[in-house]
Simulated assay, not measured.
Amino acid sequence: MREIVFDTETTGLSAQGGDRLVEIGCVELFNRVETGRVFHAYFNPERSMPSEAQAVHGLSEAFLADKPLFADKVEDLLDFLEDTPLIAHNAQFDFSFLNFELKACGRPIVSLDRMIDTLAMARTRHPGAKHTLDALCNRYGIDRSHRVMHGALLDAQLLAQVYVELTGGRQIGLMLGAPETLVTAAAGPASAVATLVERVVRPARAHAASEEELTRHAEFVAKLTDPLWLKGVVAG
């Protein structure tokens, strides 16, 4: 099953209030394993960058000035997303900005039916705990030492690992009793590559006891005194 984990960075908190999308990072999963395929882009928001937002993600007006507009990259983004389920943390926020930008350039918006919210999942699984991305990485032992500031692609890669843990951990990839193939991956969010490993299917071995084994077993049982399985049995 193909899924996309994504994250966004913006100029503020409200697309309807004039804020814009400035970065998006997407990570492809197949059967909960990162394939190594990603989509990442910065966008010129055509507006100023509030200092509060820049303090979160570090993206300045000068850095974004020569970046493409969202409309210039929208087809590449849609080709990557296809009709796949989309996973985000506090997904309503990310979907609101993504859909605002899509609508602004005349593209159909993404249906909320495709939305998977890891924040809602974490609240259900760990009620009363902290549910930030940092807190969930700490809970599941995911290395976030390289996360100095928010970044859409880095956060999507961390969230992909959190999502795997929220949905059963790495053992979900064992696929017990299913196909003759297993999916494995290299360690680490940036280097994970899906690989199909062929499993050799061998015919079942016969397990019936030989005549000699049956004879030896009968002789052994005959030597037992007052065996448990005969207690309470009335001789006929």
Rank of each mutant, 00 (worst) to 15 (best):
W229M: 08
A71Y: 07
A55H: 07
L166T: 07
K223T: 15
R139L: 13
V56T: 07
K103I: 12
P85S: 09
A190E: 10
R37F: 13
I24H: 00
I87N: 01
T225L: 11
V5H: 11
D72I: 01
R2D: 12
L29S: 07
S14Q: 13
G25K: 08
A91Q: 06
F93W: 05
D143R: 00
L153K: 00
A186V: 07
L176V: 09
V38G: 05
D117M: 02
V201E: 15
D94F: 02
V233I: 15
T181S: 09
S60P: 08
A41S: 14
A192R: 14
V110W: 08
C26G: 09
S145K: 11
A15V: 12
P127Q: 00
S96G: 04
G17Q: 13
A53Q: 07
G128N: 01
F95C: 02
H126L: 03
P179T: 15
R32N: 10
L182K: 11
F97R: 02
R199D: 04
M121F: 02
K103Q: 13
A206N: 14
T181H: 10
F70E: 09
D83C: 06
C26I: 06
F30N: 10
L166H: 10
E82T: 10
R123S: 02
I4Q: 06
R123M: 08
T225Y: 08
R147V: 05
A192Y: 03
E180Y: 05
N138M: 10
A192I: 00
